[in-house]
Computed example of a mutant assay.
Amino acid sequence: MPSETAPHDCTWMAWPSQGYTLGDTADEVASARRTWAAVADAVVRFEPVRMVVVPDDLAVAREHLHPDVELVPAALDDAWMRDIGPTFVHSGDGTRLGAVDWVFNGWGAQSWATWEHDARIGAFVGDLSGAELIGSSLVNEGGGIHVDGLGTVLLTETVQLDPGRNPGLTRSDVEAELARTIGATTCIWLPRGLTRDYDEFGTRGHVDIVATIPSPGVVLLHEQHDPAHPDHAVSRELRALLEDARDARGERFEVVGVPAPRTLTDDEGPVDWSYLNHLVVNDGVIACTFGDPQDDASLAVLAEAYPGRRVVGVDARPLFDRGGGIHCITQQQPSL
């Protein structure tokens, strides 16, 4: 699996059409559509966007989206393309594109989730991309892994070893499947994700709001500085683990903290707002903002971590209200 910083042919997304992601009120529906459109419009400045849309919503999607966004009709349950779509990989010689079709079961068969249609999107997108489909029996989501392109993968024990996802599997079982599918030679297991991610609409610990690898040997880590927030202890624990870890080359990481927003709570409790849930695109980074005093400083950390790329912020609060962020609703297709 190449690094997200490798050149892309396009970014895939899915249009919100029903369920809790879309919302129950007219205001919630409008907010979801505006936010998904804002992300797509930001991405399409840098690279093509292909948006999977329920056929009945083609007209409303076209009204909201930049004309350069390509619409692809298909049935959907939800709109989290990172998790329902395929994970793209290269052949060893770099001449062929593959698409890993993980098993998707609603983030561990959560009671509120449906996935009849979403479970087919990995193969559907993989086929449209022209990639060779790589089937997998592992229940996994794209938000549950981050790689450096050299064989290192970050993942969390509470996702791939979740009894609701992969009952009975061991670390060794998961590692063997990741070696077969994405070429992982070194797995760095984080014990958990952010606190809010274990609430009703969470993913039970996706790594893509916790840490990422912007370049070989460097890890960006969500850092909560306020002891009043439960993620203060989480980020300290993860820093200690990552500072002791070694990548696929056998080298230690430089761990760079990305300070969390200063907002600590919303109406539901401690927030998991995170600048780590960004998408790297060709020549740019599409970053989460929160109308927070910390936005500018933390986006500056991202700009330094991705030299030569323009950082564009999009208000991600409506996404996090629904359980995810910008990285969660996008999936890059790497170039050959």
Rank of each mutant, 00 (worst) to 15 (best):
G98Y: 02
A6L: 14
G92H: 09
A287E: 08
R50F: 08
D24S: 13
C328Y: 13
G85L: 06
A303K: 11
H278T: 05
D197S: 00
E177R: 14
G202E: 05
D173Q: 09
S335L: 06
V311F: 14
A287N: 06
G122K: 03
A32T: 02
A233E: 14
T212Y: 05
D197N: 03
L241P: 01
G164I: 12
L65M: 13
L71N: 10
V312P: 07
P259Y: 10
L220P: 06
V39K: 09
S111F: 09
V44Y: 07
P86D: 02
V219L: 13
W80Q: 07
S215N: 07
Q331R: 05
D83V: 06
T25W: 11
V281Y: 09
P191S: 14
W12T: 06
F201Q: 14
S235Q: 08
V218T: 11
H225W: 12
T265L: 12
C10Y: 11
I213V: 14
G23V: 05
A176C: 07
R120N: 08
H327P: 10
V39R: 04
S31E: 14
A40H: 12
V39I: 11
N140W: 05
E4H: 07
T11E: 15
A316E: 11
R252K: 04
H66N: 14
A260L: 11
Y306F: 15
G284N: 09
P73M: 13
H229R: 12
L133N: 08
V285Y: 00
D78A: 03
G130K: 08
V258L: 06
Q332R: 13
L220V: 03
G202R: 03
S298N: 02
I134Y: 12
A14Q: 15
S172T: 06
S31L: 07
R180S: 04
G108F: 00
Y275S: 03
L190A: 08
V314K: 03
V174P: 00
Y20T: 10
E175I: 04
H222K: 05
V29T: 13
R196F: 01
V147I: 04
L302P: 05
L221P: 02
D199Y: 01
R196G: 00
S31D: 09
G98Q: 08
S91Q: 02
Q18T: 12
D197F: 01
D78G: 08
D272S: 14
E4L: 06
P2I: 07
D315A: 04
F124M: 12
V271T: 13
L276C: 04
M81V: 08
H90D: 09
G126V: 00
H64E: 15
E254D: 08
G291M: 10
R317P: 07
H206V: 04
I329S: 03
E223C: 13
P293L: 04
L220D: 04
T87G: 08
T186H: 03
S111Q: 05
D24M: 10
T195F: 09
E116I: 09
A245N: 00
Y306W: 12
H225C: 14
F88A: 03
V159F: 11
G98E: 06
T289M: 00
E157T: 02
H278C: 14
A297D: 10
V159Q: 12
Q294Y: 01
L336Y: 00
A109V: 12
L71G: 07
S111N: 10
G193N: 13
G142K: 00
Q110R: 15
I134G: 11
